[in-house]
Write a protein that binds this DNA or RNA. Structure first.
Lengths: 345, 345
DNA sequence: CCAAACAATGTTAGCGCTGTCATTATGCTT
DNA sequence: AAGCATAATGACAGCGCTAACATTGTTTGG
């Protein structure tokens, strides 16, 4: 006769943490009642609930999400995958997302892909393992394997930043292309004729802005390929300075430079200060995104303000609607953008 | 007689995702073998493993981490709680942490406390529910409830950024106070006599830098309280400009201003450019952290370089040692800092 | 005053996976 | 040839929790 209870503790109970059963045993009640005391307080008698909470605190009880997820088939996790944390754009989006998800009891799981589609793929896989109730992704284009996996598992997905015209794709953003075009047209309206476009990182959003730029210049009959400077390196303020130098070698008569984001543009402003190029008299400079610093630079930076926080908020709301099987009015929400004319152009 | 199998599917199997059992059934083998094929490939015959992987791909199988965590009492999760994502300092630390954890199969769970100890407390609680194998925290001081919880659960904890002399506290960082003192002494050595300290956010690290500043000036017999400007607002470039204005009202004869971080200092540089105050001739400016932009500003910014990435790397390594019950040589690692004298002072 | 509704708690089973301990087949040593 | 190690697979139980249903006791409406 082997004593069953002897076999009990062969396996490490998860680091000896207190469980619902521990609390229940101490109070001589059943564990389901303890569970209810936390999840459904109204269903447990006031007085008993207080005693449960007291014992729970004494024991340092923390609920085990893995067990809860497994039992309820609801993880309350939302996976969010973004390309970079060094880019304030995505941080703003995250804050928007978090503002909606946290109060509703969802836990955001954050993945950073470093602008690599391989990593993106790996992250989707890794976070699907957390059994998320939904996923938020930062772009529209994924590798076939990723799309296949997402379809198979059937998890609701919302895409941010860009717009899609496909029927079953849910997205919140604005037209990057239109924004690029708007800025270029603004520069044209200001009388600039030899307008350059300088870009780095070259993700799909950057490329879309470039298309908008090209469009506007072609329409105006002023497009010149030598004024396009695009490099794959990650954006930074220092890179903005270097690219300005290269641009001025490559096309010295340029009278306005449209940088694909504010980081590069700020670096260019510094480089101009260093080289004593007066902005905008000798060279106009424009950026994209309206980061918080861009209103403070000298000269202040002409740019396009993008509704990043709102994209996060509305994206999260759309995802919650999908999760709770409510109807989603529109599968695409265009939040637009705003031209910010300032001193630099 | 109730048909047992009829009762089977009453509960939603987690969104109908494929399970190990599904794969096993399809191949006429047992699920434990499928599990081994993924976790312990050497233990399963080559040929069988290939068939398993093929079927898994077909079904879009993704392992269920909740189940795995529950069964193995090892979550492979590491909770990391930081005060802010808008601050490049913490992003650099995260990159360091991730570099170590990812290849070892750990999943980093990120929480942002917005510099609030209430939120910090709530986050510790929320992430303990993920049954983390370890926790990385950004400071040393926690509310009693948090400390109590961490002790009760016995999860290994590593603190970053600051140093502690307490025996059982594990931390990786540098002395914020010494760094503040070093910068102040550098300014003194450069001949500045009326040195101000401007700070925002006022977390424990900022305050420690302030103590270093005060120390140095008191020792030099040059301390003057009216040159200390400290506000609780979150740091930003715009705030740096405003604080410079206030400082110059409050103490117009100041000849050097030490800002508690580079964001503020950069804002001050812009404000000087705007007001045509020449830096460093009329006013010297110094920052802290050596953010990537700080070498590119005009004039370039004198600052203290902090080993952020390395703090992340070494912190993560220390935590892994604790988790795997290896001996940890030192419970405190001081990574130092480096003065970066540049044009602004 | 009784049936029906409700409030408070309990019983049972199972979510998907893995630790532990078999079991069987195969090779290898002396 | 006997004995033993090793390789490949399987059976079983249980991690901590919760959905579904069951069981009490108590209230309420007519």
């Amino acid at each position: 006769m082997v004593d069953k209870s002897a076999k009990r503790n062969v396996r490490a109970s998860s680091s000896g943490r207190a469980t619902l059963d521990d609390i229940a045993a101490k109070l001589g009640i059943s564990s389901i009642t303890v569970s209810r005391a936390f999840r459904n307080p109204g269903k447990v008698a006031e007085e008993l609930r207080e005693r449960i909470i007291k014992v729970a605190d004494e024991l340092g009880y923390v609920r085990n999400r893995a067990a809860s997820t497994l039992a309820s088939a609801r993880s309350m996790n939302i996976a969010v995958i973004i390309p970079s944390l060094s880019n304030a754009v995505f941080v703003d989006i995250l804050n928007g997302i978090d503002k909606i998800l946290r109060p509703r009891g969802y836990q955001m799981l954050l993945g950073v892909s470093h602008y690599s589609s391989e990593e993106e793929d790996a992250l989707v896989r890794a976070y699907l393992a957390f059994d998320p109730d939904g996923i938020i992704l930062p772009s529209l284009n994924y590798r076939e394997a990723t799309r296949h996996l997402l379809e198979k598992t059937g998890v609701p997905v919302v895409h941010l930043m860009e717009l899609s015209d496909q029927p079953h794709v849910h997205c919140v953003g604005f037209s990057q292309e239109a924004a690029g075009k708007t800025m270029t047209q603004h520069l044209l309206a200001k009388g600039y004729k030899r307008i350059a476009f300088v870009a780095s990182q070259l993700d799909s959003r950057t490329l879309a802005r470039g298309r908008g730029y090209r469009d506007a210049l072609v329409e105006a009959g002023l497009y010149d390929q030598k004024r396009e400077l695009m490099v794959p390196d990650p954006s930074s303020i220092a890179l903005g300075g270097r690219l300005l130098q290269r641009l001025l070698q490559q096309a010295p008569d340029t009278d306005a430079a449209f940088f694909c984001n504010d980081d590069l543009a700020q670096g260019a402003l510094f480089e101009c200060a260093r080289q004593q190029i007066s902005v905008p008299a000798q060279l106009a400079i424009a950026g994209f995104n309206d980061l918080s610093a861009s209103a403070s630079t000298v000269p202040s930076l002409t740019t396009i303000a993008t509704p990043r926080f709102d994209i996060g908020v509305q994206g999260a709301n759309m995802l919650l609607s999908l999760i709770e099987h409510q109807k989603v009015n529109r599968s695409t929400i265009d939040l637009g953008f705003e031209l910010k004319p300032r001193e630099s152009a």
